[in-house]
Simulated assay, not measured.
Amino acid sequence: MTEILFYHLTESTLENALPGLIERSVERKWRVVIQTGSEERRDSLDNHLWTWSDASFLAHATDLEPYPEEQPIILTTGDGNPNGATVRFLVDGAAPRNVEKYDRLVLMFDGHDQQQLEQAREQWKALKAEGHTLTYWQQNAEGRWEKKA
């Protein structure tokens, strides 16, 4: 059964929060696919992940580059799984599909964006109605994740 986690950004941006979560996934030897809501966001995150930390390196590629199956992390706008990932991150309103093909599905949404909040609520309801077990994480004042449901 796929573990489905909702991450509610309230204290930091996606650019600040996502790399740490990806890094922990890769440390666990999980392959990761990150689905964005637009090509512009995919390309922006691609650039950001190369430079996000002087102390860390996240080897990755976009779905436009050759040999995606060799990449531990792929950024895409589509719903495919070009690197055989077991973990899928959905950001900026990307819709979950083929949920059962992953060990973990992580939906991240900006708490300051009303459209993303509403979309996350609808996704929660739909996934819950399908019988999935869901967990909800929200940032505290220090930006740490706290399990709320």
Results as ranks from 00 to 15, higher is better:
130 E>T: 03
137 W>L: 09
51 T>S: 14
47 N>E: 15
121 R>S: 12
91 V>A: 12
122 E>R: 12
127 L>D: 13
94 A>Q: 04
113 D>W: 00
108 M>D: 10
121 R>L: 13
52 W>M: 08
88 R>S: 07
64 L>Y: 15
134 L>C: 05
123 Q>S: 14
103 D>Y: 13
129 A>Q: 15
101 K>E: 14
136 Y>H: 07
64 L>K: 15
78 G>T: 11
137 W>A: 06
128 K>E: 15
48 H>D: 06
123 Q>K: 11
127 L>C: 11
60 H>E: 03
124 W>G: 01
62 T>Q: 07
71 Q>N: 06
126 A>D: 01
102 Y>G: 05
65 E>V: 02
122 E>T: 05
66 P>E: 08
62 T>Y: 01
96 P>W: 10
94 A>G: 08
102 Y>T: 04
50 W>T: 08
62 T>M: 04
47 N>M: 15
57 F>G: 05
102 Y>L: 09
125 K>A: 01
107 L>A: 07
75 L>Y: 02
127 L>K: 12
92 D>P: 10
99 V>S: 01
65 E>F: 02
129 A>W: 14
125 K>Y: 03
121 R>Q: 15
75 L>I: 06
52 W>V: 13
107 L>N: 02
96 P>V: 05
73 I>D: 03
89 F>T: 05
93 G>K: 07
123 Q>I: 07
136 Y>T: 08
115 Q>W: 09
50 W>P: 06
123 Q>C: 03
66 P>N: 01
104 R>T: 12
116 Q>H: 06
137 W>T: 11
95 A>S: 11
105 L>R: 06
128 K>G: 02
114 Q>P: 01
58 L>V: 06
82 P>H: 01
100 E>R: 00
113 D>S: 09
76 T>Q: 00
82 P>I: 04
127 L>V: 13
51 T>I: 15
84 G>W: 02
75 L>P: 00
65 E>W: 06
52 W>F: 14
132 H>W: 06
47 N>C: 12
123 Q>T: 13
56 S>L: 08
67 Y>C: 11
72 P>T: 10
47 N>F: 14
61 A>F: 02
95 A>D: 09
65 E>H: 04
108 M>I: 09
53 S>L: 12
74 I>V: 13
79 D>Y: 02
79 D>L: 00
